[in-house]
Design a binder for these strands. Structure first.
Lengths: 335, 335
DNA sequence: TTGTACGCGTTATCAT
DNA sequence: ATGATAACGCGTACAA
């Protein structure tokens, strides 16, 4: 026993009557150790409750067995959206059976980008997953160029080097949603789009615009910022400008919930007067009245895949492609 | 430069023309270093982009500068509730200015408790925050007895040793909510309680029962599991058993949203026919129709305080008391 | 004030 | 198959 209470390799070796090296081999599953020796060592490990010292190991292997999940967003919007928790859940699920631990790097207050970059460059983690929504400054570009395995949760805006990323097909998802509104007979279809400094905002708007154009219908757009407040403002503007609209495609469930409320308060029935389609299929979608018809993104799966790719990159594989996953229309009561 | 690309103390020393030890002193802010020397060293550090190797440092200091946030819940309910993200945000906020990193320990699949305990005992982190909702098995008891600074996010059920914990006054919060229903003239007040293996479930029910008893009114209770589905089932049962109820106190916003929907579908108007009060003040509360009146818990603050206490314990302070924070009634449209 | 020298617990190389 | 032994990068008595 050393001072800190944890037994060391040395002590296990002494108890098992072998050398440090042999114990190390057993711990790391080396094939060339006599079964008898293995048994003796394992017995000693059990008896002492030995746990390898990660710091010592990291020092020599130059691997930390930990990966970072980075949220380089100074504002707390990320947290109010259930999206983030689902992502985390997915990442964690594929990391669980590996030795890798999840280190959370958040930028809660004013952006101290240099600190973040220093940390990532300092060899404290083996790789990083970037959950970023905005193309803020050029932090994404700097992250992309780090000499460290990195994957992005969405095609990072304004980055001109090839990166690995995982995302849903936002354009196609939006198309599905708008087409559904068309298919149930709506013609005066407006959209509440997300901010244009996020790929999700841009692409979902594009999908809406494409379908409307193909149908020969005029586009009606208001912008929100993916928050309930933003959704509310946008919905009010829309009703003001186009009181006769009969369909509404909203770029996120969080904003859609607010829109539903605004519609209801304006005396409109959903879906009878105005049919509403959201985007995400978050927990929120089933808490509204009526339940929200929405475009589901498989967020947990994205997170899971993100982790898989990162692990592969850490293992040395090249990977600089954008993986795109399909969305799925979930029809409930609002459209 | 060594193989990994990061410069070492040695290289900084060479460039600055001093010894390793002196550089180390500068890095760690030792007071007795000549200003000139400090300047020279800092210049060298900057020039080389030196970052201390955390593994090497941890090896000798026996501190890891990282704390764990542990969610020993095998099911994913934690993630569907915005509560968790807010907690994380609070913890992260007070950790940000410190050197400590946040390590996330989740138990996504079947509980591998021993693995978790081994990890925590292995000196990989300096301390841990336990976010636990259930009194599952005796994992909490085992955690509480670990030779490691630990704080709990709520008074842990079934633990008979003194522990440090932070929570809101759930009894008082529930009382406030129910009293509000009384104050607006409701007399047939039911509750949707949480599960009785969580302190939040028990205490909020207690608060409800106390107030009802004091008012000489009969209690009407249905149980949910803090999910929307559970809330829906409970609401249906309640309406079935007590079709004439005019007030409803729901132990969580997530369940309350479902209850609102059930009430609406049953043809009842909220708050005209039935007034509803939730608990949490999560993002959900403003997404419903009508907006939810609810008992706010300062979740970010709890997380923040949790981190503060943990840091203090790591620094050597004793701390085994339960800190209780106040809730606040947020009156919106549902009651 | 600064430098020397040792030890932290592990892996990896090289003998045996 | 196993055992010495040398790194890994850093902090810190102890010396100077």
């Amino acid at each position: 026993m050393n001072g800190s209470g944890s037994p060391t390799l040395e002590e296990v070796a002494a108890l098992a009557g072998v050398s440090r090296a042999t114990v190390s081999r057993v711990v790391n599953g080396s094939p060339k150790v006599l079964p008898d020796t293995v048994a003796a060592v394992e017995q000693a490990i059990l008896q002492l409750g030995y746990v390898p010292n990660r710091a010592a190991r990291a020092l020599v292997t130059r691997r930390t067995d930990s990966v970072a999940i980075v949220v380089p967003e100074p504002d707390s919007r990320v947290f109010s959206d259930p999206f983030f928790a689902r992502m985390l859940s997915g990442v964690s699920r594929t990391l669980a059976p590996t030795p890798s631990q999840l280190v959370l790097l958040l930028e809660p207050a004013e952006a101290d980008d240099q600190r973040l970059l220093r940390y990532l460059r300092g060899g404290h983690v083996d790789g990083a997953i970037i959950i970023s929504h905005h193309g803020r400054d050029n932090i994404l570009q700097e992250l992309a160029q780090l000499p460290l395995p990195i994957v992005f949760s969405a095609r990072p805006l304004g980055v001109d080097v090839p990166v690995a990323s995982v995302d849903v097909d936002n354009v196609a998802g939006a198309r599905t949603g708008v087409q559904h509104l068309l298919s149930i007979g709506r013609r005066k279809i407006a959209t509440i789009a997300g901010p244009l400094d996020m790929t999700a905002g841009i692409d979902r708007l594009t999908g809406y615009q494409e379908v409307m154009k193909e149908a020969g219908l005029p586009a009606m757009v208001a912008y929100g910022d993916f928050t309930p407040d933003g959704g509310e403002q946008a919905a009010l503007r829309l009703l003001d400008d186009h009181p006769d609209l009969d369909g509404l495609f909203v770029a996120s469930d969080l904003m859609a919930t607010a829109a539903l409320r605004v519609l209801s308060q304006s005396g409109r029935r959903v879906p009878a007067d105005v049919a509403v389609v959201g985007f995400d299929d978050s927990v929120l979608a089933t808490t509204t009245t009526p339940k929200l018809t929405t475009v589901r993104q498989p967020v947990e799966q994205l997170g899971s895949r993100l982790a898989e790719i990162l692990l592969a990159k850490i293992a040395g594989e090249e990977h600089t492609t954008a993986e795109i996953y399909d969305t799925e229309l979930v029809i409930r009561d609002s459209a």
